[in-house]
Amino acid sequence: MAMYQSKYFFKLLEFQWERTKAYPIRLIISLSWVIFGFIPQFFFWYIIAQSTNTLPYTTKEIILYFLFSMGLFYNLNQINQYFNTIARGEVVTSVIKPMSLTANYFSIFFSTIFINKLPNLIIITIIGCFIVGITSSILAAIFFLFGLILGCTFFVCFFLLMFWMRNNWGVKWGIDILILFASGTWIPLDILPKFWGGLLLNLPFQLMFYTPAKIFLGQITPTFWLILQYVFWIIILYIIARILEYYGLKYYEQLGG
């Protein structure tokens, strides 16, 4: 079964890549999107870093931090089209044995976001090689991918909750904000007050952007313990997803089935 699932996963990756090649203009648009979103952040944080010396970052570091997090940030918008699949009844086409719904969703989410972010990841890694060094850049890219696996597993759990919540866009928007804030994309977590910073640093979201961004800056050295944290949270979220899938499919009614 694992063999079948991994085959499906790589087929999806290949399909996403082919689709991207078919629409090359989307790549340019995607990059321009990042640039236009990044410019205001650049000026904002540049002025702040110039005006104070109480931040635990130099001007260069804070700019690089936001280059990394803004350039690679992903949210549920990129997989919006799958959000309604349960409410609309389209999920039945994904419940095909021996594939689990969790594996199916994960493969779709990961391949979509990964291929979408691949050009940005390559560009940021190359820029990083010249500014922060080859080791930090490549390690940050690897940990970003670990974070992406974690993020997609979390998205799967959230999407499976739609068996009970139907198409609740309010909650979806809340999750977007939560990820934006708790992952350190909006603001580096070590700038936050002690209580909030301490709380968010103990949640898995920080592993999605904050940790890879700090590795990018060379402020965190990856250890075996850090990898274990990723593995731990991925396993926990996977188990939650499987439980949700089991009870969700039991609860689900489609065409009287």
């Binding site: 609740n168 866009w169 309010g170 909650v171």
Partner: peptide, 23 residues
């Protein structure tokens, strides 16, 4: 449920914005 949660999330978003700029 969608309507109420949207309003609650909107308020939380304001609080987070307030917190962000306060920091």
């Amino acid at each position: 449920a969608d309507f109420y949660s949207s309003i609650i999330i909107q308020i939380i978003y304001f609080i987070i914005q307030f917190l962000f700029f306060s920091i």
